[in-house]
């Protein structure tokens, strides 16, 4: 069983957390996420031009790059994480150019070597799958696709074709870190997606509080929280880990119990 399958087989919704590699003390923060109860880790690969991100994650990218974080550093952080945490699924999330600049085969092989389970590439839609999809699948790394409020029924099969790991539902048409979508629209969308795929569906963008997360966890298989962690790291710098762990725990408690409360 893959790490994704084992995680989503648990009888409770998953907490999926995002932080940017090289922003703050990444190793300590990753450990804090796991200790606090995160089920899936998304590690952002910093990029100079994060077009789909709001101000918080943009700033995290620039802080990381200003410290000199390289792609080799990101893979080293991933590999070290895998050694410390053999069971927690790890996803690299980022933009096409850093992922493909040395060739998709190189990138896929590095992912496999580092123990990365899945990749989210923001600016490679299914139309351009050839750019990275075949290489990842051949290396046994899942390509996690995004569905959005603008993904209509006609496109959805294309989006799902070649997708692996889980399906990431971007709940707002917009960038990261903005307002949350209405609960009703999330429920409709998740139902629509789950009717179309057996993949677990995780919902993200704009989720900042345990209350919001619990609401979404009633209907989704996972809830993604990113900018709220980035804000904590921006505030506390290299000493953020205890704060990260405490916040993770409040989210995990809210999400893991959500379906029982609902039942």
């Amino acid at each position: 069983m893959t790490r994704f399958a084992a995680t989503f087989a648990k009888p409770r919704p998953a907490l999926v957390t995002f932080i940017t590699a090289g922003d703050g003390d990444t190793a300590a923060n990753l450990d804090a996420l796991v200790a606090g109860g995160a089920d899936v880790i998304e590690l952002g690969m910093p990029f100079t031009d994060p077009m789909a991100d709001g101000p918080a994650i943009q700033a995290a990218n620039l802080r990381s790059l200003a410290k000199g974080t390289t792609t080799a550093d990101t893979f080293a952080m991933a590999a070290a994480f895998r050694k410390r945490h053999p069971d927690t699924p790890l996803v690299l999330m980022g933009y096409a150019n850093p992922m493909t600049i040395r060739g998709a085969d190189w990138f896929a092989a590095e992912c496999a070597k580092a123990g990365v389970d899945g990749v989210i590439c923001v600016d490679i839609p299914s139309e351009e799958d050839a750019e990275i999809g075949p290489a990842l699948r051949a290396a046994g790394v899942d390509l996690i696709r995004l569905a959005t409020p603008t993904t209509d029924a006609a496109r959805l099969p294309d989006v799902l074709n070649g997708a692996g790991g889980f399906l990431y539902y971007v709940s707002v048409a917009g960038i990261t870190g903005l307002q949350q979508a209405a609960q009703a629209s999330i429920e409709d969308a998740v139902a629509r997606l789950k009717a179309a795929t057996d993949l677990p569906v995780a919902v993200g963008f704009g989720v900042r509080t345990p209350e919001q997360a619990a609401q979404i966890a009633k209907v989704a298989d996972g809830v993604v929280v990113g900018s709220a962690f980035i804000d904590i790291i921006a505030e506390h710098g290299d000493a953020a880990a205890p704060h990260v762990e405490a916040f993770t725990r409040t989210l995990a408690d809210a999400i893991h119990g959500a379906k029982e409360i609902a039942a």
Binding site: P125, R145, L146, T151, V170
Partner: peptide
């Protein structure tokens, strides 16, 4: 060339 955009923009 091509269409390297986020899924949100693709339908547009």
């Amino acid at each position: 060339g091509g269409r390297y955009v986020a899924e949100t923009l693709m339908p547009l």
